[in-house]
């Protein structure tokens, strides 16, 4: 079992990293598209009312004021408290936010456990009595994030499950796979919570498990911890099949599509890319299209 758990953990982490990398690279390698701006564009100077540089006379002659950081801040604010949902639908926001918080805390919890294992390997004690301040705070943070993420996971996902089932508008568009996802999160969170209670609130055994992974010497885990580890690894394997990567793709959607207001300037890199794209053959077959000819020959 020790070897199985270790191999499953290695596999799960490699799998999610590879899958997410493929998804991101695939997304970013898609060709530049025609402009499809949607206002307000937050990096624009006149973003407050949704204005653009097209409001200026001879707009191509003036210097553009563009604030990347403002746009990033805007998106981060939405990441922090899901502002769009809060404004539109409070009850949905409440359960959605709780479930998102649990997800973020789960990532932080995992990082804290891994860092704790690394500290322990370097002879830094991770406990409430640790003489090392890093070890002490790491222990305390882990103690907080673990149960917080499990409780939020149970509450948020139960809330989402009930809301999506009870609301007919949402139910119609909720697949069994989505319900499965909520149940999976609830079961994972429950197993984590049970392990936390069973482990004496310290997560010591889980850190030891990770220490074993780093020194390629898998340690044994009790049944409760084994269940938790299996579930958390399955969760990592399951994530690439969901839309969870929208945490990242959302950034692309805003910067590369909705807010992409970059004008095409003669001789620019953008123009060179476009010329190449126009050099491709079209196989659309409607009567008004010259099938087999290039875009620039149509």
């Amino acid at each position: 079992m020790n070897i199985f758990l270790a191999l499953l953990t290695y596999f799960a982490y490699i799998f999610i990293i590879v899958m997410y990398t493929i998804k991101i690279v695939k997304y970013l390698r898609l060709p530049v598209h025609l402009r499809w701006d949607l206002y307000p564009v937050i990096h624009e100077e006149k973003y407050r009312y949704g204005g653009s540089y097209f409001e200026g006379l001879n707009w191509w002659t003036g210097a553009r004021q563009k604030s990347f950081w403002r746009a990033l801040r805007y998106l981060m604010r939405d990441y922090l408290y899901l502002e769009s949902y809060l404004k539109k639908n409070f009850s949905y926001w409440l359960v959605l936010y709780t479930s998102h918080i649990s997800f973020v805390l789960l990532i932080i919890f995992q990082i804290l456990i891994i860092v704790g294992a690394l500290l322990s390997l370097n002879d830094i004690e991770v406990s409430r009595t640790s003489p090392n301040i890093s070890g002490y705070f790491l222990y305390r943070f882990t103690q907080f994030t673990g149960p917080a993420c499990f409780i939020a996971g149970i509450a948020g996902n139960s809330g989402l499950l009930i809301t999506r089932f009870a609301n007919s508008d949402l139910r119609l568009y909720t697949s069994s796979f989505m319900y499965f996802g909520y149940v999976f999160h609830i079961v994972l969170s429950l197993s984590g919570l049970i392990f936390w209670l069973y482990d004496g609130y310290s997560f010591l055994q889980y850190r030891e498990f990770w220490k074993g992974l780093f020194i390629l010497n898998p340690v044994s885990a009790n049944t409760v911890l084994t269940c938790f580890i299996i579930l958390i690894n399955l969760h990592l394997i399951y994530l690439p099949f969901t839309r969870a990567i929208h945490y990242i793709t959302r950034l692309f959607a805003f910067f590369l599509i909705r807010w992409d207001d970059e004008p095409n300037v003669r001789g620019s890199m953008l123009e060179k890319k476009l010329i190449k794209l126009f050099d491709q053959k079209v196989s659309w077959s409607a009567p008004h299209i010259q099938t087999g000819k290039k875009w620039n020959e149509q």
Binding site: Y27, L30, P31, V32, H33, W36, S84, Y85, K88, N89, Y92, L96, D169, L170, Y173, T174, M178, R243, H246, T249, R250, F252, A253, L256, I257
Partner: peptide, 15 residues
């Protein structure tokens, strides 16, 4: 790119 994004990442929240 816009098409693939819109098809793949809608969470059907009905907002």
């Amino acid at each position: 790119q816009p098409l693939m994004h819109s098809l793949e990442y809608c969470v059907k929240c009905q907002l």
